[in-house]
């Protein structure tokens, strides 16, 4: 729809990691973690990014906020290409873009109090004096469902779900516009996952946040996302509205991926047909020519092994990169 404003536009993003082999190898090969990926994120929406381990979904997220330096491509944030910005130029954008990490145990400094953890980004960006920052910490703690007195405690005194709340409070401290949540609930228990997801939804509505939600739990991604992108071996293979993607998956890989979700309903699980994929994901160091999924795809033709399919709109904003849908 045209009334939606674009917050981030990613064009031809590439991130290669060098692999050094041997002692004197001067020309290293590269892991093509993200290889020519383009998509947009609209203001106020949640874009889900799914795929299996090694597909590049986490690298994509981290490259967008420039935790990794992109190898090539544009990252247009609110009209400005930040892809080539240096650290100093990035500072104002660092405030606008925040991140929630997967592991609530590893992402909080055990030697800092919760109050210090949450106020640190405020102090770094020089947004307030100490007293005002403390008040903000109290406000944030209440906002994420913790008590004001928790500010003086240390991370080890909290459970996984509570720690994830602390991580969210820290991300919110500098009033960001855009939050990347990288597997924010996969380390939590089922009953706690729902608490955190509901809170993320409430915060989005109240604070007009935009999310990039990276996860491998496909049912939770469908629940939280407006649109979903499916990645395979460094490429975006399909991108569509979440209901559309789940009801009408076009790409053979998406079809296999969705059929593999375990359904929490014994009758449906018994009647469901599963597309079991043969083989494994090829190495991203020397990815196959043409469509990267061709080797495991039962519809693959000669063309698929030769020509890389482009991500194309096949109607209603449903994008797919597959030769089956060539006109």
């Amino acid at each position: 729809m045209s009334d939606k404003k674009t917050l981030i536009e990613v064009k031809g993003l590439k991130k290669y990691f060098p692999v050094k082999k041997g002692l004197f190898n001067k020309t290293p090969s590269y892991v093509k973690a993200v290889d020519d990926v383009s998509f947009t994120i609209n203001k106020g929406e949640t874009l889900g990014l799914v795929g299996e381990s090694g597909c590049g979904k986490t690298t994509t997220g981290r490259t967008i906020i420039k935790l990794y330096e992109p190898t090539d491509g544009q990252i247009i944030y609110d009209g400005v290409d930040i892809a080539k910005f240096n650290e100093k130029q990035m500072i104002p954008y660092r405030r606008k873009m925040q991140m929630i990490f997967q592991d609530p145990y590893a992402s909080l400094n055990p030697r800092m109090t919760v109050g210090d953890i949450i106020s640190e980004p405020i102090m770094i960006h020089n947004l307030m004096d100490k007293k005002a920052a403390q008040e903000r910490v109290q406000y944030l703690l209440n906002r994420v469902g913790l008590n004001s007195e928790h500010a003086n405690r240390y991370p080890h005194e909290f459970s996984g779900g509570q720690r994830q709340r602390i991580g969210i409070a820290r991300a919110l401290a500098v009033e960001p516009e855009f939050i990347i949540a990288d597997e924010p609930i996969s380390a939590l228990d089922v009953s706690i996952q729902a608490q955190v997801v509901n809170m993320l939804e409430d915060l989005q509505e109240d604070l007009e946040l935009t999310y990039l939600f990276v996860a491998h739990d496909l049912s939770m991604v469908k629940h939280i996302s407006t649109r979903i992108g499916v990645m395979y071996l460094g490429k975006m293979v399909e991108l569509a509205e979440s209901n559309e993607l789940y009801s009408k998956p076009l790409h053979p890989y998406t079809q296999a991926l969705l059929s593999a979700i375990p359904i929490p309903d014994p009758d449906e699980a018994a009647s469901k047909k599963r597309i079991v994929l043969e083989g494994e994901i090829p190495s991203p160091i020397d990815p196959p020519k043409g469509c990267r999924f061709a080797g495991r795809c039962k519809y693959a033709t000669e063309k698929c092994r030769e020509v890389t399919p482009e991500l194309k709109d096949v109607g209603g904003g449903h994008m797919v990169a597959c030769h089956l849908y060539d006109k």
């Binding site: 299996e52 991926l257 593999a260 375990p262 079991v276």
Partner: peptide, 10 residues
């Protein structure tokens, strides 16, 4: 991953 999970469960 889910696709591998499906294989193992089968």
């Amino acid at each position: 991953d889910v696709t591998i999970q499906a294989q193992i469960l089968e």
